[in-house]
Write a protein that binds this DNA or RNA. Structure first.
Lengths: 251, 251
DNA sequence: CCCCTCAGGTTGTATATACAGCCTAGTGCA
DNA sequence: TGCACTAGGCTGTATATACAACCTGAGGGG
């Protein structure tokens, strides 16, 4: 084996995860305290603390100061729909990304985007429409609305080179995002842009990004429903559950 | 203020996040090393280490042993589509959840589920079909396939009382899940079960859960596309980005 | 000119120690 | 019986120290 000896705090974590996984420790059971782990395994308390602290952050256990550490009721069956920069997404697949800009203008915001951006209906915002291609196959139509004060040079950008998502991230690197996923029937414009069959449904991801504590950008991302799948395989930073599952695990 | 004095590692984190947020530290910029933080702020190196280690886990910075710490290109615009137990989901909204069991039997697995569960086509698996209601409105059709060896008493369960998801969690509390989201046109059975209009599309979440290092359950969850929305507001444990955004942040 | 080596800075881990804050259980007093 | 208090265990944080592993860049030898 190519085992350069796992660090001790990791061994401790895996020991405990193993006991939980094997049923020796059941939900709500008490996990050995830091000092008990010190006595049992010979590590220092700080090492035991790190192991338990990380297990807590990962959802395996809950800790109460003065009381103890307990196995979580059930590890949150988690998630994972990471939708970031479609260009990156495509690059990761080793494919080629190109984009066509259909609309790049100032316009009065419609009720939907206005509500999402928390501005009055009719407020001028930047409006973008792009078609993203993966190896010449249209894969996403992006309708985006951006607060003018947030990105004043939005009209001068070349969004075939840098996606709006990447551009906005560059302006304010600390963005949070909300996503809403829906299935709809596409209108004719979307349908032809994505070269879709007649009665094929469409997956719409509405994304709102926040900066400085308020929404600054709202986008509707249209995908051909059956052609493109959002896979749960990608592991966002900090999500360790999936990497464990992926790397074979039991030892 | 009701400030019981934040711990120093937290102050350090907020200091650095503040500098990134204000643009003083830009993506790819070098963040002060642990020792520099020690000299600058007077904390011990272990405290600086903890601050930087957590910032790394949260996606703010990247660290390279022997080189330094650097501001992330952009904080992964993250995610959040948490799909867990639909009953819990409905309860959280303060509504009433009921379920109808249409199918609960052993059956030979079709190619799709067989592939997902990594068994041969035709292998006998438990097959469930349920309709979930939120306040008498049909909200989800659940087609589920479970490995027989994993849940031998699957036929005796009353899934109107405990959802399959909760039941499986109880059997093996440590489950991981993958999700794939697609939009499709429902077949007649789904369409009538969900009381859908004629050409309304359908949101399908395919979920595969893992236990003991292998897939044990595969489900297709059908939602009426336009009636039900998966909101990104829920904050899963360990996702600190959203809670920060929620609690007001700048201090 | 290229390659090797080595020094120094940086992260990653581990330990021993210390104190604060929280909670529980039990003691003792009224 | 019922209440107040306390001792002890537990987590949370902080520090000082140590060594290993890693990377870069400078310098020297071929």
């Amino acid at each position: 084996m190519s085992e350069p000896a796992k660090p001790r705090y990791r061994q401790l974590k895996e020991l405990i995860i193993g006991q939980i996984s094997a049923g020796e420790l059941r939900p709500r059971d008490r996990v050995p305290s830091e000092n008990e782990l010190v006595n049992a395994t010979g590590v220092s308390r700080m090492t035991a603390n790190r192991a338990l602290r990380e297990l807590k952050r990962e959802g395996y256990v809950e800790r109460v100061a003065g009381v103890g550490t307990f196995v979580s009721d059930f590890k949150a069956v988690s998630h994972v729909l990471e939708v970031r920069n479609i260009a990156d997404e495509i690059e990761r697949r080793g494919h080629n990304h190109t984009a066509i800009v259909l609309v790049q203008e100032k316009s009065a915001s419609a009720p939907g985007p206005a509500g999402a951006l928390r501005v009055d209906e009719g407020t001028e915002v930047f409006h973008l429409v792009l078609i993203h291609h993966e190896n010449a196959l249209p894969i996403q139509v992006e309708h985006r609305f951006v607060l003018m004060e947030f990105a004043p040079d939005c009209l001068e950008q070349d969004f075939t080179a840098v996606t709006p998502s990447a551009y906005l991230s560059a302006i304010s690197p600390l963005q949070e995002a909300e996503h809403v996923v829906r299935a709809v029937m596409p209108d004719d414009e979307i349908k032809s842009s994505l070269e879709m069959e007649n009665h094929e449904p469409c997956l719409v991801i509405s994304r709102r990004t926040w900066a400085h504590g308020r929404p600054v950008s709202f986008a509707r991302l249209y995908h051909p429903g059956s052609r493109y799948e959002l896979s749960g395989h990608y592991v966002p930073p900090g999500t360790e559950a999936f990497s464990r599952a992926a790397e074979g695990s039991d030892e």
